[in-house]
Design a protein around this nucleic acid. Structure first.
Lengths: 202, 202
DNA sequence: GTCTATAATGAGATAGAC
DNA sequence: GTCTATCTCATTATAGAC
């Protein structure tokens, strides 16, 4: 691990930290665990980063930049109509949560930690802006593809999507009730579709 | 602090821990902080409880028993119809979150911590069962009071209510956008009311 | 520049005096 | 039974050898 510029080390540490956090949670992301994940000696940590919270800030930047949600942005849904597409996208997110629950939990933990840490308290706003933008983008793309229109401001619907997504994830993490989660997503789909105008709008 | 039975001390510690957690978060709820809150010497902690996680388990029991949600159960809403009552109840919850954001955040932190701690991993299920029961009870009471019926199983609607409530709380904690939160609750109310039959059911 | 070795701190838990 | 004083451990952070 020699001859590597500090900025690259910093980035490598942030990625290693995200891996540790996704696997074991924020509390387990000690400086030791992070450098072990990155294959660096302990002293490299403060050589590159200054403090643990500073690195966690970098990690949230990664999430904001989309590294935590990349899977959803590149999703390709093949559905006959908008309703099916919406439901399938929710379903794809459910699969994501079921495949890697610890990762989704880690996103919540990062937010909570940042909210409790004065130096990081601004980051959750950016994090949720990023989520809302992703949802709005998916909603807009869906409407365009199926020739429909949303009858409410897309930002309001995006916030609803993120809220129901977060809420559904939390309850699933708590009780792992797949069937109830599916029914909840049906309900969420109904709620969204109640605010569409398809074909020729008024 | 003499002559107090161990079981009472244990309960006192659990309440003190909940106070600390509600104010400063789970990570700040060290044994020292908890006994300071309770006005006890440090050694009383392990005299009464065994371990920190054991006490956190007690704290979640308190939440499950309703101490974290008592405000909502005793809510008295005065509204002309079911829709207004639903919206007002959501609004009351928003007020609760705005009045004591740290407390609501603490509920999330307790869940996350329990999920990451093998000895406590069963508790989130009970915690969410308790939430779902509270929501179901509120939905049933509302329908009865206004002579309406829900056209979906009340447990599914209860899960939707808790999900949207959690999700809305998380986004509000992140960006403190009151206006957006109100619009989200309007949307959630619409979604619920789409599943009512009022007057004479089929 | 890099990393071994070591502070310095704060944590959970306990021994033993009263 | 109760609590003071202490132990042991893991943590963040740094000093100083190479």
């Amino acid at each position: 691990m020699s001859r590597i510029p500090a900025t690259e080390r910093r980035a490598a540490l942030a990625h290693a930290a995200m891996a540790v956090i996704a696997r074991d949670g924020v509390a387990a992301a000690t400086t030791r665990a992070i450098v072990a994940e990155a294959g660096m000696p302990l002293a490299s940590f403060h050589y590159a980063v200054g403090s643990r919270d500073e690195l966690l800030s970098d990690v949230i930047e990664l999430v904001v930049a989309g590294e935590g949600t990349a899977t959803l942005g590149s999703l390709e849904i093949d559905a006959p109509d908008l309703r099916s597409a919406v439901r399938a996208t929710f379903g794809a997110y459910l699969d994501l949560v079921r495949t890697d629950p610890a990762r989704e939990q880690a996103m919540f933990e990062l937010t909570q930690h940042a909210l409790r840490t004065p130096a990081l308290a601004d980051l959750p706003r950016q994090q949720y802006d990023s989520y809302h933008q992703l949802a709005a983008q998916l909603l807009a793309a869906g409407a365009e593809r199926y020739g429909a229109q949303w009858s409410l401001p897309i930002d309001d619907l995006a916030r609803f999507v993120i809220a129901i997504t977060d809420g559904f994830t939390l309850s699933w993490l708590a009780d792992r009730d797949d069937a109830a989660a599916e029914r909840l997503l049906d309900l969420a789909t109904d709620a969204l579709m109640a605010h569409t105008l398809n074909g020729a709008p008024a």
